[in-house]
Design a protein around this nucleic acid. Structure first.
Length: 278
DNA sequence: ACATTGACCTGGGAGC
DNA sequence: TGCTCCCAGGTCAATG
Protein backbone atom coordinates (compact mmCIF):
# COMPACT_ATOMS: atom_id res chain seq x y z
CA UNK A 1 0.00 0.00 0.00
CA UNK A 2 1.87 2.97 -1.29
CA UNK A 3 2.59 5.89 0.97
CA UNK A 4 4.97 8.71 0.17
CA UNK A 5 8.21 6.65 0.28
CA UNK A 6 6.73 4.00 -1.98
CA UNK A 7 5.55 6.59 -4.50
CA UNK A 8 8.95 8.29 -4.39
CA UNK A 9 10.56 4.92 -5.09
CA UNK A 10 8.31 4.39 -8.11
CA UNK A 11 9.04 7.91 -9.39
CA UNK A 12 12.79 7.28 -9.15
CA UNK A 13 12.32 4.05 -11.06
CA UNK A 14 10.16 5.63 -13.76
CA UNK A 15 12.21 8.77 -14.30
CA UNK A 16 15.13 7.20 -16.23
CA UNK A 17 12.73 5.04 -18.24
CA UNK A 18 10.49 7.92 -19.28
CA UNK A 19 12.47 11.15 -19.35
CA UNK A 20 13.60 12.21 -22.80
CA UNK A 21 11.57 9.44 -24.41
CA UNK A 22 8.29 9.18 -26.29
CA UNK A 23 4.90 7.68 -25.42
CA UNK A 24 3.89 6.26 -28.80
CA UNK A 25 0.83 4.28 -27.73
CA UNK A 26 -1.51 3.87 -24.78
CA UNK A 27 -3.80 0.90 -24.53
CA UNK A 28 -6.68 1.04 -22.07
CA UNK A 29 -8.32 -2.11 -20.73
CA UNK A 30 -10.63 -0.22 -18.38
CA UNK A 31 -12.16 3.21 -18.66
CA UNK A 32 -12.56 3.72 -14.95
CA UNK A 33 -10.46 3.36 -11.84
CA UNK A 34 -11.68 5.23 -8.82
CA UNK A 35 -13.47 7.46 -11.31
CA UNK A 36 -13.70 7.63 -15.09
CA UNK A 37 -10.33 8.15 -16.77
CA UNK A 38 -10.28 11.25 -19.03
CA UNK A 39 -8.90 9.10 -21.83
CA UNK A 40 -8.90 11.74 -24.55
CA UNK A 41 -7.19 14.28 -22.33
CA UNK A 42 -4.55 11.78 -21.20
CA UNK A 43 -3.87 10.90 -24.83
CA UNK A 44 -3.71 14.54 -25.82
CA UNK A 45 -1.12 15.27 -23.15
CA UNK A 46 1.00 12.14 -23.54
CA UNK A 47 0.74 10.65 -27.00
CA UNK A 48 3.70 11.31 -29.32
CA UNK A 49 5.09 13.78 -26.84
CA UNK A 50 8.58 13.86 -25.47
CA UNK A 51 8.55 13.37 -21.70
CA UNK A 52 10.31 16.27 -20.06
CA UNK A 53 10.19 15.29 -16.41
CA UNK A 54 8.77 12.82 -13.88
CA UNK A 55 8.23 13.99 -10.34
CA UNK A 56 6.06 13.57 -7.26
CA UNK A 57 3.61 15.78 -5.39
CA UNK A 58 1.96 14.16 -2.40
CA UNK A 59 1.26 10.59 -3.51
CA UNK A 60 0.79 11.53 -7.15
CA UNK A 61 3.25 10.65 -9.87
CA UNK A 62 3.39 13.56 -12.33
CA UNK A 63 4.58 13.14 -15.89
CA UNK A 64 5.39 16.36 -17.73
CA UNK A 65 5.33 16.77 -21.50
CA UNK A 66 5.38 19.87 -23.65
CA UNK A 67 1.56 19.62 -23.84
CA UNK A 68 0.87 19.45 -20.14
CA UNK A 69 0.93 17.05 -17.22
CA UNK A 70 -0.38 13.56 -16.58
CA UNK A 71 -1.17 12.46 -13.01
CA UNK A 72 -1.08 8.91 -11.67
CA UNK A 73 -2.12 7.91 -8.16
CA UNK A 74 -1.52 4.30 -7.11
CA UNK A 75 -4.35 4.21 -4.62
CA UNK A 76 -3.90 1.27 -2.30
CA UNK A 77 -3.01 -1.53 -4.61
CA UNK A 78 -1.66 0.16 -7.73
CA UNK A 79 1.61 -0.90 -9.32
CA UNK A 80 3.53 0.56 -12.23
CA UNK A 81 5.59 -2.24 -13.72
CA UNK A 82 8.14 -1.97 -16.49
CA UNK A 83 7.96 -4.74 -19.06
CA UNK A 84 9.46 -5.55 -22.43
CA UNK A 85 6.13 -6.99 -23.51
CA UNK A 86 2.97 -5.07 -24.27
CA UNK A 87 0.76 -8.04 -23.47
CA UNK A 88 -0.72 -7.82 -19.96
CA UNK A 89 0.53 -10.68 -17.80
CA UNK A 90 -1.32 -9.84 -14.62
CA UNK A 91 -5.01 -9.77 -13.90
CA UNK A 92 -6.24 -6.20 -13.25
CA UNK A 93 -3.91 -4.59 -15.76
CA UNK A 94 -5.89 -1.45 -16.63
CA UNK A 95 -3.65 0.36 -19.09
CA UNK A 96 -0.27 0.04 -20.77
CA UNK A 97 1.95 2.91 -21.92
CA UNK A 98 4.26 2.13 -24.84
CA UNK A 99 7.56 3.94 -24.46
CA UNK A 100 9.94 4.48 -27.34
CA UNK A 101 13.52 5.16 -26.36
CA UNK A 102 14.76 8.10 -28.40
CA UNK A 103 18.38 6.90 -28.39
CA UNK A 104 18.01 3.36 -29.71
CA UNK A 105 14.32 3.24 -30.80
CA UNK A 106 13.76 0.30 -28.43
CA UNK A 107 10.20 -0.24 -27.18
CA UNK A 108 9.37 -0.67 -23.52
CA UNK A 109 6.05 -0.79 -21.70
CA UNK A 110 4.71 0.51 -18.41
CA UNK A 111 1.86 -1.66 -17.13
CA UNK A 112 -0.53 -0.23 -14.59
CA UNK A 113 -1.98 -2.99 -12.40
CA UNK A 114 -4.48 -2.19 -9.65
CA UNK A 115 -6.79 -4.90 -8.24
CA UNK A 116 -8.73 -2.60 -5.96
CA UNK A 117 -8.97 0.22 -8.47
CA UNK A 118 -8.49 2.98 -5.91
CA UNK A 119 -5.96 4.58 -8.20
CA UNK A 120 -6.48 7.58 -10.42
CA UNK A 121 -5.26 8.73 -13.79
CA UNK A 122 -5.77 12.37 -14.75
CA UNK A 123 -4.19 15.10 -16.82
CA UNK A 124 -4.18 18.80 -17.52
CA UNK A 125 -3.04 20.87 -20.45
CA UNK A 126 -0.75 23.82 -20.02
CA UNK A 127 1.41 24.75 -17.07
CA UNK A 128 -1.05 25.11 -14.19
CA UNK A 129 -0.92 21.59 -12.82
CA UNK A 130 -0.97 22.78 -9.21
CA UNK A 131 -4.38 24.39 -9.79
CA UNK A 132 -5.84 21.00 -10.75
CA UNK A 133 -8.45 19.63 -8.34
CA UNK A 134 -6.10 16.84 -7.26
CA UNK A 135 -3.61 19.37 -5.90
CA UNK A 136 -5.30 22.68 -5.12
CA UNK A 137 -6.23 21.77 -1.53
CA UNK A 138 -3.07 19.89 -0.53
CA UNK A 139 -0.88 20.84 2.42
CA UNK A 140 2.88 20.97 2.67
CA UNK A 141 5.41 18.38 1.55
CA UNK A 142 6.85 17.03 4.80
CA UNK A 143 10.38 16.67 3.46
CA UNK A 144 10.43 20.17 2.01
CA UNK A 145 9.15 21.95 5.09
CA UNK A 146 12.15 23.33 6.90
CA UNK A 147 10.67 23.19 10.38
CA UNK A 148 7.85 20.70 10.07
CA UNK A 149 7.26 20.48 13.81
CA UNK A 150 6.76 24.23 14.13
CA UNK A 151 4.44 24.19 11.13
CA UNK A 152 2.38 21.38 12.68
CA UNK A 153 2.21 23.18 16.00
CA UNK A 154 0.95 26.38 14.33
CA UNK A 155 -1.72 24.36 12.56
CA UNK A 156 -2.60 22.03 15.37
CA UNK A 157 -2.64 23.84 18.67
CA UNK A 158 -6.28 24.89 18.19
CA UNK A 159 -7.60 21.64 16.76
CA UNK A 160 -9.70 19.36 18.89
CA UNK A 161 -9.32 16.20 16.80
CA UNK A 162 -6.68 13.57 17.52
CA UNK A 163 -3.06 14.25 16.73
CA UNK A 164 -3.00 11.14 14.57
CA UNK A 165 -5.84 12.27 12.34
CA UNK A 166 -4.18 15.66 12.06
CA UNK A 167 -0.85 14.34 10.77
CA UNK A 168 -2.79 12.11 8.37
CA UNK A 169 -4.85 15.07 7.11
CA UNK A 170 -3.44 15.88 3.69
CA UNK A 171 -4.81 19.39 3.77
CA UNK A 172 -2.23 19.95 6.51
CA UNK A 173 0.68 17.75 5.48
CA UNK A 174 0.71 15.24 2.63
CA UNK A 175 2.10 11.74 2.38
CA UNK A 176 1.67 10.50 5.94
CA UNK A 177 -0.54 7.43 5.82
CA UNK A 178 -1.42 4.99 8.55
CA UNK A 179 1.91 3.17 8.76
CA UNK A 180 4.12 6.23 9.05
CA UNK A 181 1.65 8.06 11.29
CA UNK A 182 1.79 5.18 13.79
CA UNK A 183 5.55 4.83 13.53
CA UNK A 184 6.40 8.51 13.85
CA UNK A 185 4.11 8.99 16.87
CA UNK A 186 5.75 5.99 18.50
CA UNK A 187 9.21 7.44 17.94
CA UNK A 188 8.06 10.83 19.25
CA UNK A 189 6.53 9.10 22.31
CA UNK A 190 3.20 10.84 21.78
CA UNK A 191 -0.07 8.94 22.13
CA UNK A 192 -2.20 8.96 18.96
CA UNK A 193 -5.26 9.52 21.16
CA UNK A 194 -4.15 12.96 22.35
CA UNK A 195 -6.11 15.94 21.07
CA UNK A 196 -3.97 18.15 18.83
CA UNK A 197 -4.65 21.15 21.08
CA UNK A 198 -3.28 19.26 24.09
CA UNK A 199 0.03 18.35 22.47
CA UNK A 200 2.89 20.55 23.63
CA UNK A 201 5.07 22.55 21.32
CA UNK A 202 8.17 20.52 22.09
CA UNK A 203 6.21 17.34 21.30
CA UNK A 204 5.21 18.81 17.94
CA UNK A 205 8.87 19.45 17.26
CA UNK A 206 9.58 15.80 18.00
CA UNK A 207 6.69 14.63 15.82
CA UNK A 208 7.90 16.76 12.89
CA UNK A 209 11.40 15.43 13.27
CA UNK A 210 10.25 11.81 13.45
CA UNK A 211 7.91 12.09 10.45
CA UNK A 212 10.88 13.26 8.41
CA UNK A 213 13.07 10.54 9.86
CA UNK A 214 10.75 7.62 9.07
CA UNK A 215 9.94 8.92 5.59
CA UNK A 216 13.58 9.50 4.68
CA UNK A 217 14.64 6.14 6.03
CA UNK A 218 11.87 4.39 4.11
CA UNK A 219 12.85 6.16 0.88
CA UNK A 220 16.47 5.12 1.37
CA UNK A 221 15.31 1.56 1.76
CA UNK A 222 13.18 1.62 -1.38
CA UNK A 223 9.82 1.80 0.36
CA UNK A 224 8.40 -0.42 3.02
CA UNK A 225 7.45 -3.79 1.69
CA UNK A 226 3.91 -4.58 2.68
CA UNK A 227 1.28 -6.68 1.01
CA UNK A 228 1.05 -4.99 -2.33
CA UNK A 229 4.08 -2.83 -2.92
CA UNK A 230 6.47 -3.69 -5.73
CA UNK A 231 9.18 -1.59 -7.26
CA UNK A 232 9.08 -0.67 -10.92
CA UNK A 233 11.03 -3.78 -11.95
CA UNK A 234 8.61 -6.01 -10.03
CA UNK A 235 10.99 -6.66 -7.11
CA UNK A 236 9.95 -6.06 -3.53
CA UNK A 237 11.15 -3.06 -1.58
CA UNK A 238 14.03 -3.98 0.67
CA UNK A 239 13.20 -5.37 4.08
CA UNK A 240 15.42 -2.78 5.75
CA UNK A 241 12.50 -1.02 7.37
CA UNK A 242 11.81 -2.42 10.78
CA UNK A 243 8.37 -1.33 11.88
CA UNK A 244 8.08 -0.77 15.62
CA UNK A 245 4.33 -0.79 16.23
CA UNK A 246 2.35 -1.00 12.99
CA UNK A 247 0.56 -4.34 12.84
CA UNK A 248 2.23 -5.55 16.07
CA UNK A 249 -0.73 -5.91 18.41
CA UNK A 250 0.18 -7.86 21.55
CA UNK A 251 3.89 -7.87 20.82
CA UNK A 252 6.35 -6.44 23.34
CA UNK A 253 7.27 -2.79 22.92
CA UNK A 254 10.81 -2.38 21.61
CA UNK A 255 11.45 0.44 24.09
CA UNK A 256 9.78 -0.46 27.39
CA UNK A 257 8.04 -3.26 29.25
CA UNK A 258 4.68 -2.56 27.65
CA UNK A 259 2.85 -4.33 24.89
CA UNK A 260 1.59 -2.84 21.65
CA UNK A 261 -2.12 -1.97 21.69
CA UNK A 262 -4.45 -1.73 18.73
CA UNK A 263 -7.40 0.68 18.79
CA UNK A 264 -9.79 2.07 16.18
CA UNK A 265 -9.62 5.74 15.30
CA UNK A 266 -11.93 7.14 12.65
CA UNK A 267 -12.52 3.61 11.41
CA UNK A 268 -8.80 2.90 11.01
CA UNK A 269 -6.51 0.75 13.14
CA UNK A 270 -3.95 2.55 15.26
CA UNK A 271 -1.10 0.70 16.93
CA UNK A 272 0.86 2.21 19.81
CA UNK A 273 2.39 1.54 23.22
CA UNK A 274 0.28 2.89 26.07
CA UNK A 275 3.23 2.76 28.45
CA UNK A 276 5.77 4.92 26.70
CA UNK A 277 3.55 7.02 24.41
CA UNK A 278 1.99 9.65 26.64
C1' DA B 1 -15.43 25.67 10.36
C1' DC B 2 -14.14 21.63 11.95
C1' DA B 3 -14.51 16.62 12.96
C1' DT B 4 -16.09 12.07 11.95
C1' DT B 5 -18.05 8.39 9.21
C1' DG B 6 -19.06 5.64 5.24
C1' DA B 7 -18.46 4.33 0.39
C1' DC B 8 -15.55 2.87 -3.05
C1' DC B 9 -12.98 -2.11 -4.38
C1' DT B 10 -10.85 -6.82 -4.30
C1' DG B 11 -7.97 -10.43 -2.33
C1' DG B 12 -6.84 -12.89 1.48
C1' DG B 13 -7.38 -14.79 5.93
C1' DA B 14 -10.31 -16.46 9.78
C1' DG B 15 -13.98 -19.11 11.30
C1' DC B 16 -17.46 -22.45 10.73
C1' DT C 1 -13.37 -28.19 0.71
C1' DG C 2 -16.25 -24.39 0.42
C1' DC C 3 -18.82 -20.87 2.06
C1' DT C 4 -19.46 -16.32 4.45
C1' DC C 5 -17.68 -12.55 6.85
C1' DC C 6 -14.47 -9.11 7.73
C1' DC C 7 -10.46 -6.33 7.12
C1' DA C 8 -6.87 -3.60 4.74
C1' DG C 9 -6.52 1.70 3.40
C1' DG C 10 -6.34 6.87 0.40
C1' DT C 11 -9.58 9.95 -0.74
C1' DC C 12 -13.64 12.56 -0.58
C1' DA C 13 -18.61 13.27 -0.15
C1' DA C 14 -21.94 13.27 3.24
C1' DT C 15 -23.16 13.84 7.81
C1' DG C 16 -22.76 15.47 12.58
Amino acid sequence: MPELPEVETVVRGLEPILSGNLVNNIRFYRRDLREAIPINLVKKVLLHQCILNVFRRSKYIIIETSNGFCFLHLGMSGQAIFSESQQPKLKHTHFVFSIQNKQDQQQGYIHYVDPRRFGRLGACEGQGWSQHQYFSHLGVEPLEEKDLGLFLWKNGHKRKGSIKSMIMNHEVVVGVGNIYACESLFRARVSPERRSCDVEKKEYLAIGKEIKFVLKRAIQAGGTTLKDFKKIDGSNGYFAIKLSVYGKEGEPCTRCQGRVTCIKQAGRSTWFCRFCQK
